[in-house]
Amino acid sequence: MADNIGNKIRKLFDFQRFEKEPGLQDVIEDSLNNVAGVRRLTETELENAAGGVRIGNDMNNVGKAQTGVGTISNKRKCECGGDIRLLSGGRGVCVNCNKTFYDL
């Protein structure tokens, strides 16, 4: 049963490599970026890059989730100085050096 659904998903993903349906492509890329620990910048962050990173619409809202970007921890930073992007289950990943944290 599990093999059957697995094979069907494999076929769909193969078709996705051809069709590149945008909604599914976003889900795939978000997930792969998450694994790589890469933080996708929102337009707001890109606009504010010169003046430092603005998280969300309010500088006081560090820690709140944003569309397309994982929540950035407002409690800890990595030893390398990078922000830690929060994952579920108390885990996090440094967006700079990809170090994974398990005790957040």
Partner: peptide, 26 residues
């Protein structure tokens, strides 16, 4: 069906979604 797969994947936990994409897409 690709859209439906996207919606179904969004309903999984982040960790489950990662495993599925790494295994079946990558």
């Amino acid at each position: 069906t690709l859209s439906e797969l996207a919606e179904a994947l969004k309903k999984l936990s982040e960790e489950e979604r990662e495993v599925i994409i790494l295994h079946y897409y990558e």
